[in-house]
Design a protein around this nucleic acid. Structure first.
Lengths: 232, 232
DNA sequence: ATCCTAACTGACCGGCCAGTCAGTTAGGAG
DNA sequence: CTCCTAACTGACTGGCCGGTCAGTTAGGAT
């Protein structure tokens, strides 16, 4: 702002001394930009975060970003896809590591999910804070759909036909149930994000109490017993 | 566009005939603008919907909107607050109409919630599709907080201290549980919005099955019995 | 030493959109 | 009929931001 406006002159030498901007191989710079972008988007969301903002955080000119990414949307999508994949892989791995039947595997999946939320809080924020943003929305809808699908696939074999309310298809019921679980999961993850002091096991216990035990039995004083779980 | 550019002249008379724009008392016009705004925002969200878009839908010039509302944000907030209030009142009324104890009242609340979603689909979309929009976010956070508070207040007395996992406060548990319920509720409401053919009772049954019965018992084939509820 | 490429930048453009303003006109009061 | 106000509009502005471009320079290869 008030720099070099009739103040003591700044010679080219000074500028050079002032800007020891080190050049970097493209790959490294790319990483730095990505890191800055995750930060920025996690904090403000896609639309509310300008590329200039990302550029400043990366300590780089906006134009340079375009050397690495064709557009703002592409940059964002790349981040998204990276983390969506990571989340899915994490959950999948947790599920697959369990040799037991459906319910226990589902539980393992929930744990995997919570682990991601715990380890990648920035990514988690970037992922959920910005559902419903036109261009980007498709990616989210896809993520939600796939997650719900995974959950549903795990639930379906456990679900006896007797659960069927007349008039609804089996698929609908499975779908609705898995979305509810996903919704509850998302909600508690967001809540957890504001209560970081609470350990993961505790959160897991709350999920189990809510979703597994059910409110009716919970009200009756029954609890989920962590020791019924293997693998951890 | 291609009007009156060397084509057959349009006399002032024609313009008048073409635009039988009837003037209206301010209050009536205001209503129309509000209706148009709900439509527009429900479809596209706050940021993605321009005031011009709203103006077009209301068949009115953008400038006129400023005669009724000081800013775009104010217009949106007014809608929000109106519907937030309506939703809260609806749920509250349903809860209060039940003379019985906690669990049944909570159930009534869920029904009230679903009723709002069913009757005011536009409003519902406007409400949930646009969490996480900087300026507007506060209002949502408030809504969520208040809803969770209501649910929590209903749940708390039903919740035996024995449910407490060691290390977490009672408030935390109630809070986490109510947020999960709210999350599940939101999720199924969104799902329902894409499956309108399914009757409300059915959706209610699914919520009860998930949240009340719990997955463990559901997997064992137990079902929630609608007849255990009074008041419809 | 010099050159050549790839890293990097500042300055600019054009489109979009909230918000403004200088008016025009409908239609009721007198 | 004639005013006068409130309803209403088109045309404009200024700021923001994604995207571009014409360069500048670091630093490795020869």
């Amino acid at each position: 702002m008030a720099v070099n406006v009739h103040g003591p002159k700044i010679t080219p030498r000074d500028r050079i001394r002032r800007k020891p901007k080190r050049r970097m191989p493209a790959a490294k710079r790319r990483e730095l930009i990505i890191d800055a972008a995750i930060d920025a988007f996690a904090e403000g969301g896609y639309h509310e975060t300008s590329l200039e903002e990302v550029a400043v955080r990366a300590e780089v000119s906006k134009a340079l970003i375009y050397e690495h990414f064709p557009s703002k949307l592409d940059l964002f999508q790349e981040l998204l896809e990276t983390y969506v994949e990571e989340l899915q892989n994490g959950v999948m791995a947790a599920v697959m590591a369990t040799t037991e039947g459906g319910e226990t595997r589902l539980l393992a999946g929930v744990e995997g999910f919570l682990e991601f939320v715990e380890d990648r809080r920035d990514a988690w924020r970037m992922l959920i804070r910005h559902r419903a943003t036109d261009d980007v929305n498709d990616t989210f809808e896809k993520l939600y759909g796939e997650m719900a699908g995974m959950i549903g696939a795990l639930m379906a074999p456990e679900m006896p036909a007797s659960v069927l309310p007349e008039g609804a298809s089996f698929e609908d019921v499975v779908d609705a149930m898995s979305r509810q679980l996903l919704g509850a999961l998302t909600a508690i993850a967001n809540w957890w994000d504001e209560h970081r002091d609470i350990p993961r096991d505790q959160v897991l216990a709350m999920v189990m109490e809510f979703a597994w035990v059910g409110m009716e039995r919970a009200a009756a004083g029954e609890r989920w017993k962590p020791d019924q779980v293997e693998g951890h």
